[in-house]
Structure formats: structure tokens, C-alpha cells
């Protein structure tokens, strides 16, 4: 009971989601079965969305769920199913490769953790109490920001910042067009005619 009373719920949920995220990420790394990898990835990304919720970015979190988990992972599953053949096990890499990778990865992790923990201000918590979640309202601000109006910067003194010069209309438009092009391109690539070497030795025979 004592513990419950002093428990910081925010920390509890953070730890829960962080553990899930990292755990399933590691699961992805060490899993050999591609379907399991995709499944773990889903869970990892879903937990990560939980972290986003916790960090006061519910819109990004929901976006993560919708696009990553609902879209990308389904796409991955598609890829898995369309390219599946029996012997995934043959796609293991040699033990030596694992060792080198783990060493380099460990170094990288050490490097990143050092960098993350070095800065003092990143380690000092915010002094006020955590704001209640219900007050967080982000969708409108983000939408306005994407259309070039920074309602969150209205209090700033720099007129350039206030006027919406810091908005993201142009990147938003660029990225929209980019997305469209990518979708068209992906659809095109996925159904281009394929030249496959046929058994008869004629390399140009068309198999559609």
C-alpha cells in the first residue's frame, strides 16, 4: 500500500512501455522467423506509440498506430506472404557475423547512451507537477502548423517566428506530393514486367 501511494504512475507506465518497446525490439533482432519479426515489430511499435501518448503527443501516437501498425506492418506482412518460401532458416548469417555485429552494436549503444546521459539538462526533470493528460490538445496545433500557422508560437516576440515562417506548409506539400509519387512508383514497380531467365536459356523470354 505504501508503495502504491508513493508510486509515480507516470513512471510506472513509462517503464512498462519502455520495457515492452525494447524487449520486442530485441525480440525482432533475435528472431529468425520473419513473421515473428513482423509480429514483434508490431508490438514494439505499438508500445512506442504508448510512449508517445505518455510524452504528451497523442496525435503522433495515434498516427503511429494508424500508419505504422495499421499500414506499414500490414504491408510488411504482405511482403512476407508474397515472398514466403519454405526455408527461411537458410537465411541465417554465420556466427562470426553475429559476434562482430554485436560488438559493433554494443559500441554504438555505449556511445549513444554516453551521449544521452552526458547532458545535464536532459537528466533534470521538469520541476512542476506533470500536467494532466486531458489538457493536452495537439491535433489542432499540429494541423495549423502543417498549414503554416504556428498558433503555439503566438507568444513569441520574434515576428518572423510568429508570422508562421516557422510553419511547415511547404514541407507538408512537398511530402504530400512525395507520398503520392512514391505510391504511384511503388505500384508501378510492383507490377513491372519481369524478365526471368527461363530454363531454355533464352534470357529475354517474357513471363509477365
Amino acid at each position: 500500500m505504501m508503495l502504491l501511494a508513493t508510486l509515480d504512475w507516470y513512471s510506472l507506465f513509462f517503464l512498462l512501455f519502455a520495457l515492452l518497446t525494447c524487449g520486442f525490439a530485441v525480440g525482432v533482432l533475435f528472431s529468425d522467423n520473419i513473421v515473428h519479426m513482423a509480429f514483434y515489430l508490431t508490438l514494439s511499435l505499438g508500445s512506442c506509440a504508448g510512449l508517445f501518448f505518455l510524452a504528451g503527443a497523442p496525435f503522433v501516437g495515434a498516427m503511429q498506430l494508424m500508419i505504422y501498425v495499421g499500414g506499414t506492418v500490414v504491408l510488411l506482412a504482405f511482403g512476407v506472404m508474397l515472398t514466403a518460401n519454405a526455408n527461411f532458416s537458410s537465411l541465417r548469417i554465420p556466427r562470426g557475423g553475429w559476434v562482430v555485429s554485436l560488438i559493433v552494436g554494443g559500441l554504438l549503444l555505449v556511445l549513444l547512451l554516453t551521449a544521452a546521459l552526458r547532458v545535464e539538462s536532459w537528466r533534470t526533470p521538469r520541476d512542476e507537477a506533470v500536467l494532466p493528460l486531458a489538457e493536452v490538445q495537439t491535433a489542432t496545433v499540429l494541423g495549423a502548423g502543417l498549414t503554416g500557422v504556428r498558433v503555439d508560437k503566438l507568444h513569441e516576440d520574434d515576428p518572423v517566428t510568429r508570422r508562421g515562417m516557422s510553419g511547415y506548409l511547404l514541407p507538408f506539400v512537398i511530402i504530400s506530393v512525395h507520398l503520392l509519387v512514391v505510391l504511384v512508383g511503388a505500384a508501378y514497380m510492383a507490377r513491372t514486367r519481369i524478365y526471368r531467365r527461363s530454363a531454355s536459356g533464352n534470357p529475354r523470354s517474357r513471363t509477365g
Partner: peptide, 13 residues
């Protein structure tokens, strides 16, 4: 591809 990724990571470090 894997080797390239390793190159990248090592270069970063």
C-alpha cells in the same frame, strides 16, 4: 548490404 551497414556503424563510432 550487411557489410555496408557495419561500415556505417563503425565509421560513426
Amino acid at each position: 548490404l550487411r557489410q555496408y551497414v557495419m561500415f556505417l556503424a563503425i565509421a560513426l563510432i
